[in-house]
Measured scan of single mutants.
Amino acid sequence: HTCEKCSTSIANQAVRIQEGRYRHPGCYTCADCGLNLKMRGHFWVGDELYCEKHAR
């Protein structure tokens, strides 16, 4: 898989955010504040991922 955020190959663990879309665990972050979304879930606003606070 290729990380959709940093565009590099994912060798080990990948986070599947949608069918066919993956990120490194470290790239699974809010587009606004950079908070890691692991164990928090994500919210779509347009084509970007946000934490609950910044999705509003």
Rank of each mutant, 00 (worst) to 15 (best):
L35G: 12
T8E: 15
R16Q: 15
R40I: 05
Y50S: 07
F43L: 10
Q18D: 11
L37W: 01
L37E: 04
D32I: 06
H42S: 12
L37H: 01
R16H: 11
L35N: 13
G41Q: 10
H54V: 02
C51V: 00
A55F: 14
C30V: 01
Y28N: 05
N36R: 06
S7K: 01
W44V: 12
L35E: 13
G34T: 08
R56L: 15
F43P: 10
P25S: 13
H24A: 05
S9G: 10
R16Y: 12
C27G: 03
R40W: 09
F43D: 13
F43E: 10
T29G: 07
A31W: 10
R56T: 04
H24K: 07
W44C: 12
R56G: 13
C27I: 00
M39I: 05
A11P: 14
G20Q: 02
C6Q: 07
N12Q: 11
G34Y: 05
E19N: 03
D32H: 12
E4I: 05
A31D: 08
A55H: 02
N12R: 01
S7T: 12
Q13A: 04
G34R: 10
H42K: 09
A55Q: 12
C51M: 00
L49D: 04
E48P: 01
Q13E: 14
H54C: 14
G26Q: 15
L49M: 07
T2Y: 05
G46K: 12
M39D: 15
I10H: 01
T2K: 11
H54R: 02
L35I: 12
L35F: 14
A55S: 14
R56P: 15
S7E: 00
Y28T: 13
E19Q: 10
G46S: 10
G26I: 13
E19L: 07
T29W: 01
T29F: 07
D32Y: 09
T2P: 02
S9D: 15
H24D: 11
G34M: 11
R23H: 05
I17S: 04
P25C: 02
I10E: 12
Q13P: 07
D32V: 06
V15S: 07
C33A: 00
G26D: 15
G46I: 07
E52C: 06
G46N: 13
A55K: 05
I10Y: 01
K5G: 11
P25W: 01
E19Y: 02
G20V: 04
C33D: 01
L35S: 12
S7M: 10
K38T: 09
H24L: 00
I10W: 03
F43R: 08
N36D: 06
E52Q: 09
